[in-house]
Structure formats: structure tokens, C-alpha cells
Simulated assay, not measured.
Amino acid sequence: MNSAVDPLAQLTEIRAIMERSSRYLSLSGLSGIAAGVVALVGVGVGYWYVGREYGSTQDFVRVMQSSEGERLRALPFLLGLTGSIILLALSAAYYFTRRRARHDKVQLWSPLGRRLALSLAIPLAAGGLFCLAIYLQGAAGLVVPGMLLFYGLALLNASKYTLEEIRWLGLTEIGLGLVAVLFPGYGLLSFALGFGLSHIIYGLLMYRRYERTARSL
């Protein structure tokens, strides 16, 4: 009887098992696309608000740094808008990720999933408080760059638990945040590129690579 075993095949199988056990692979590209669309809608609402309140959307820094009183007056709307974007994006991410987890027959809220969520939550919470502080201190032009940088760091921190594309998305957000520091007057455009367009592009790539292929099998 031939008992020879292909060592390369064994190593490939072991690697696949280790990959499944150490990385959360059920993230859905559709959740990224949905988050990007939500962010773009939020940018549209932001443009409408700035235009209505200040009569101009061209000089983002000027209209957001005019005075402490005006910054405080705008704060409830901005917090509400940001909270709504986060809530809708998280709801979409939960829905599409749960649907893919069911398709893959894996547990959604596993210990690995909890580690992934925690690795995202800590930098995001710290970044949110930091951006709120610099807004109240008058550096409103640095809020969007700060959001992009902390979000990119959160993705980079979480990428060790999930798909490789998340690391590249994190690096993209960090790069956009650094560029946005140099052009603070284009805060809404930077937000649209970082949280809108980037999410849509990476979501499409992830969907085509992992989900569309799996569903066609």
C-alpha cells in the first residue's frame, strides 16, 4: 500500500487551518460599500448645513473656526451627524457580516470576533475624544485629519485578526489623514475620500475576491 503523503499538501492544509483559527474571515465587502455610501450621504448633509449656516462651503476652516460661540452652537448638529453616520455604518456592517457568517457557518460573536471588535474600539474611542477636544480648543481644521489618522490606526491594529485588505485600508486612511493635515480647508472632501470612496473601493475589492467567487461555487 502506498502510504506516501505529499509534504507540501500537508503544509498547505495546516496553514489553512491556522489561518481560519487565528483570523476572522467573515467580514463582508458589502458592509464596506454600505459604510462608504452612508459617509457620502453624511458629507452631503454636512455641505448643506455649512452652506445654510455660513453661506459658503469653500473655506471649511474659516466657517468652522469663526468663534467659540459658533463652534458650540454647531456642536450638537455635528455630533448628531457623526453619531448617525457611525450608527448606520455599524448597522450595515453587522447585517452583512452576520449574513456572511451564516453562509460560512461560523459564529459571529466568537472570541476572535470580540478581540477584533476590541482592537477597533480602543483607538476609535481615544480618537473620538481627541477630535472633540481639539474642536473645542479651536483647531477645527484638524478634526477630519485626526479622525482619518485614528481610524487608520484602528484598522491597522485590527488587521492582525482579519483580512489582509483591512491593513491596506488602514494605511490608506493614515495616508489620507496626513495629506488632509496639509490641506485643512478641504475637510469635507477629505472625509468623503477617506470614509466614503475608500470604503467603497475596498468593499468592492473584498466582495469580488472573497464573496462573489464563493457564491458562484
Rank of each mutant, 00 (worst) to 15 (best):
N2H: 08
A4Q: 10
V5T: 13
A9C: 13
Q10A: 14
Q10E: 15
Q10I: 15
T12Q: 14
R23H: 15
Y24M: 14
L25I: 14
L25G: 13
S26Q: 13
S26M: 13
L27W: 11
L27R: 10
S28G: 03
S28A: 13
S31Q: 00
S31Y: 11
S31N: 04
I33E: 08
I33C: 09
I33N: 07
I33R: 08
A34C: 09
V37E: 02
V37W: 06
V38H: 07
A39Y: 11
V41F: 13
G42C: 07
G44K: 07
G46M: 08
W48I: 12
W48M: 10
Y49F: 11
Y49R: 10
Y49Q: 05
V50Y: 05
V50N: 11
V50S: 00
R52K: 07
E53M: 09
Y54W: 10
S56V: 04
S56R: 13
T57Y: 07
D59T: 12
D59L: 08
F60N: 00
V61R: 09
V63Q: 02
V63H: 07
M64A: 11
Q65K: 01
Q65H: 08
S66R: 03
E68A: 14
G69N: 01
R71N: 14
R71W: 10
L75V: 01
F77Y: 02
F77C: 04
L78Q: 02
G80Q: 00
L81W: 13
G83C: 02
G83L: 05
I86Y: 11
L88C: 05
L90I: 08
A93M: 12
A93T: 06
A93I: 00
Y94I: 07
T97V: 03
R98M: 14
R99Y: 05
R99S: 05
R100I: 02
A101Q: 00
H103G: 10
V106N: 03
V106A: 05
Q107L: 06
W109E: 09
R114L: 13
A117S: 11
L118R: 12
A121W: 06
P123M: 04
L124K: 01
L124R: 03
A126T: 13
L129C: 13
L129V: 15
L129W: 08
L132V: 01
L132W: 04
A133Y: 15
A133I: 14
I134V: 15
Q137K: 14
A139L: 15
A140M: 08
G141M: 14
V144D: 04
P145L: 02
L148M: 01
L149A: 03
F150V: 12
Y151F: 15
Y151P: 04
G152C: 09
L153E: 12
K160Y: 05
E165S: 02
E165I: 01
E165W: 13
I166C: 03
G170D: 11
T172H: 03
E173I: 11
I174P: 05
G175F: 11
L176W: 12
L178R: 08
V181I: 15
F183V: 12
F183I: 09
P184S: 09
G185M: 01
Y186V: 03
G187H: 09
S190A: 15
S190Y: 09
F191K: 03
A192M: 09
G194M: 02
F195N: 06
H199M: 01
H199S: 04
H199E: 04
I201D: 10
Y202V: 08
G203A: 04
L204R: 00
L204A: 07
L205G: 00
L205N: 03
R209Y: 08
Y210H: 10
E211D: 05
E211G: 00
R212S: 04
R212G: 05
A214M: 06
S216H: 05
